[in-house]
Structure formats: structure tokens, C-alpha cells
């Protein structure tokens, strides 16, 4: 029941049905919550809640299944794209997505993600890039920026000994099997709106059987970065976006036809 006067007021925004009423375990300001919210909103708008199976990963995203109000399965570290492949192949008319962080996907799960993309699996992957392993306390991830201090690169990531960050969207976009690969950011209202639009596009791609879609979402990790949420947003804008440019890295020609 509406708790407002429908005659005099318009509902501009309310919590989506695809989220449960649980309070998250995320730290204050963590943009995991924004990503969860956007996915839930899009599934509501597309009326897909009852036809969706999510695949949770390992990391802070491990408890995603508590917050989404639809069927969920939980993958071993990095293996979400393989599990998603498995269930999508036996339930091809269901919407299947994975929700993974950068440690999970770009490090231990690099084999699984690359091959899921190369096979053109008709799944959607949400890749949260916050430049560190959040759940275990902020260790260096494959996405940690050069010079960035983490608990396992205390003097700053030294590319001479610790290598260079991986730009996942650019890398996966090179694969013929990938249909829709974009990078968005969850830092400001405009970028969040664009992220939501990309999420919608990705699910439309899957609905049409056009193959693999991946959305990289630049995110903040205030606790492990040792900053307030607001200054974390600034850090993302100043440091991350220049290294990880936002944009569409792969858009299959058929996707241009999609209208929603």
C-alpha cells in the first residue's frame, strides 16, 4: 500500500522489489550497495526477478545472495563464470549473472572469465573494481594502481616487482565471443545513471541471446583505502578513472538495434 497521497504526490524512488529487506554488511558508503541496487532495479523494470539466477563470488560480494530476492548460488573463489556457464547451459531461458570483485575475477578467476567470454556464454558479468581485496582487509589486487599502498604493497605497488594492473574490460573486449563489454563508474549521479543503462543493455543482450556481456563498475572501498566515503569518491575520480577510462569497449552491431 502506498504510504503517500497518490493524489498530491508522485513516487520518485523507492527500494526495488528484487532487494530483500536485509541491511547489508557493507561498510558505510561502499558502492557494492549501489551496484546491487541498480541490478535489482533493472530486473524489476524488466520483470525478470522470478526468472533470474545470480551467482555470488568470494570476497565482499560473497553475501550478495542475502540481499537479492531471487534464486542465488555461491561459487568458489573465481569460479562464478564456470558455475554460471553450467546453470545457464541447463536452464537457457533463465537470466544468469555473476557478481564478482576484482580479486575474485581478475586474479584467481582469470581463466574462468576469459573462457566464458571467449565461448560467448550467454551470461552477464558484473565486475566490481575497487583496486583491492576488500573482504580480506585490503590486499593488493591485479587492479591496484601503480604506487597504490595496500596491506600487501605497504610501500606502494612497485610495478618492477609486482607487475602492472590489468584493464579487464579492454582485455575481454578483444575476444570475439564477447558481445557487450563496457566500463562504468559508480561515483556520481550521472555515471550511476549510465551504469544502470549499461546494466539494462547487458540484460537485454542476454534476453536476446546475443552472448557474453560484462560491465566493469569502478567502485570505492573507503575502509581499506582509509578514507571517508566522500573523499573516496574523489580518489576514484582523480586516480581510477584516468587509469581505467570509462567507455564502451565492445558493442556487437546487433546491440545498437536494442531499444528499451
Amino acid at each position: 500500500m502506498a504510504d503517500y497521497d497518490v493524489e498530491t504526490e508522485t513516487l520518485v524512488y523507492e527500494r526495488p522489489d528484487s532487494l530483500t529487506d536485509l541491511s547489508t554488511h557493507f561498510c558505510p558508503g561502499c558502492t557494492h550497495g549501489v551496484a546491487h541496487r541498480l541490478i535489482a532495479e533493472v530486473l524489476d523494470e524488466m520483470n525478470l526477478r522470478e526468472k533470474t539466477i545470480g551467482v555470488a563470488s568470494v570476497g565482499c560480494s560473497v553475501f550478495s545472495y542475502n540481499y537479492f530476492d531471487f534464486d542465488f548460488i555461491q561459487a568458489p573463489h573465481g569460479r562464478a563464470p564456470a558455475m554460471a556457464t553450467g546453470i545457464k547451459r541447463v536452464l537457457p531461458d533463465r537470466t544468469v549473472f555473476t557478481y564478482q570483485g576484482d580479486g575474485d575475477m581478475a586474479s584467481i578467476g582469470m581463466g574462468e572469465i576469459v573462457h566464458a567470454a571467449a565461448r560467448g556464454e550467454n551470461i552477464t558479468v558484473f565486475f566490481l573494481n575497487n583496486t583491492n581485496y576488500g573482504m580480506t582487509g585490503g590486499q593488493m589486487a591485479p587492479t591496484t594502481l601503480p604506487g597504490q599502498k595496500t596491506s600487501s604493497s605497504p610501500n606502494g605497488r612497485d610495478v618492477e616487482s609486482q607487475g602492472y594492473p590489468i584493464r579487464v574490460a579492454e582485455m575481454l573486449a578483444k575476444l570475439d565471443g564477447a558481445s557487450y563489454v563496457v566500463r562504468r563508474s559508480l561515483d556520481d549521479p550521472k555515471n550511476i545513471r549510465m551504469a544502470k543503462k549499461a546494466i539494462r543493455t547487458a540484460f537485454e543482450v542476454q534476453q536476446r541471446g546475443l552472448g557474453f556481456s560484462m560491465i566493469e563498475l569502478l567502485s570505492i572501498c573507503p575502509t581499506n583505502w582509509g578514507m571517508t566515503p566522500v573523499s573516496s569518491i574523489q580518489w576514484l575520480q582523480e586516480k581510477m578513472i584516468p587509469y581505467y577510462p570509462l567507455g564502451d569497449y565492445k558493442v556487437h552491431p546487433a546491440i545498437a538495434e536494442i531499444k528499451f
Partner: peptide
């Protein structure tokens, strides 16, 4: 505010 809120904690109404 509801767009940036990570917790989907804000419901927004606008007067007609």
C-alpha cells in the same frame, strides 16, 4: 540522493 545511496535507504516523493 536515492541514486547515490548505496543502501537503497531513501524513498523520494515529489508534490504534484
Amino acid at each position: 540522493c536515492s541514486i547515490v545511496c548505496p543502501e537503497a535507504a531513501i524513498t523520494v516523493y515529489r508534490e504534484k
